Amino acid sequence: MAYEPPTHTVERSLRATTGAKIIAGVDEVGRGAWAGPVTVCAAVTGLRRPPAGLTDSKLIPPQRRTELAGALENWVTSHAIGHASPEEIDELGMTAALRLAAVRALGGLPVQPDAVILDGKHDYLGGPWRVRTVIKGDQSCVAVAAASVIAKVHRDALMAELGLEPVCEPFGFGDNAGYPSPVHKTALRELGPTPYHRLSWAFLDALPQWRHLKKVRIPAEAAELESGGQLGFDF
């Protein structure tokens, strides 16, 4: 299926209405995973024509996505990656963990942006940045699409590396990147969580033999059960 390529429309609008000159696209990956960090990429692209085939990372076949990420890393003006660990997700909740990862990514840029385009409808970042949220920005905005691809390839590689550790081998992280899958569910039921699992998430409720390991979410986040934390745990 062909998709409309992303454009610089939002970037041009921000330049015209706010005077912003350096604009970063920000996107995350790993929000719905059961294991591993949540990862955010901040990418500054300017208004140049992007490499061919750029769109939301989820719509690009894995091999092409890896190739495109390599091209993008050489093409973007600058980019940086930020993570929030499973322990930080358990302690802070997902919204605060996302912000932490995004702040780390933005802090890693050589020059701080004047404005940020954030994928989605919720501004989990806030000040001091001028933030524009764009639903499906990873399909429509060049900078966000670039951030989406780089973040996805970076986190997939990180999870594949973790998957080589003996404690993680049965979980298939190289294939599922920490997301629920039959292999992942079977290993979790039989072996219990690894040090890389998010122990505050609801999937442990379906595992009586491991339920005692569950961490209690702080009250401020107790009502915010992320989709990955509450769905798909019907073992």
Rank of each mutant, 00 (worst) to 15 (best):
A20T: 00
K152M: 02
V134D: 12
G127N: 13
E88Y: 09
G192S: 07
R211L: 15
G108D: 01
R132P: 00
Q139D: 03
E224D: 14
R48W: 09
L125K: 07
T66R: 13
G232E: 15
S57V: 10
F171V: 13
L125H: 03
Y3I: 06
V149T: 04
G108N: 05
F173T: 14
R130D: 14
P86A: 08
G30M: 08
H122A: 10
P182G: 13
I22Q: 03
H79E: 04
P62Y: 06
L125S: 09
G120I: 11
V116N: 00
E73S: 03
Y179T: 14
R198E: 06
L231T: 15
P180C: 10
V134A: 12
C41I: 02
Q139E: 11
Y3H: 11
L14S: 02
C168F: 09
L54G: 09
D119W: 06
E190D: 14
E73K: 07
Q63A: 15
D234K: 15
H79Y: 03
Y179H: 12
L14T: 03
V144Q: 04
T77R: 04
R99W: 10
I22K: 04
I117C: 04
L54I: 06
T18L: 08
L231D: 14
D156K: 01
L98G: 08
R31I: 05
E161Q: 07
L188M: 09
G107T: 11
G30D: 01
L204P: 05
S13W: 07
V29M: 00
L14V: 04
L54H: 08
I60H: 01
A69E: 02
K21M: 07
L118F: 08
L225D: 13
L188G: 05
H184C: 09
M159Q: 03
H8F: 00
P86G: 10
Q209D: 15
I23P: 03
D205R: 14
A222W: 12
I218Q: 15
C141K: 06
D205A: 13
K58P: 05
I218L: 13
L164A: 09
V26W: 05
R64E: 15
E11C: 06
E28S: 01
D90M: 10
H184R: 04
G25I: 05
T17D: 04
Y124A: 08
P51L: 06
S140A: 15
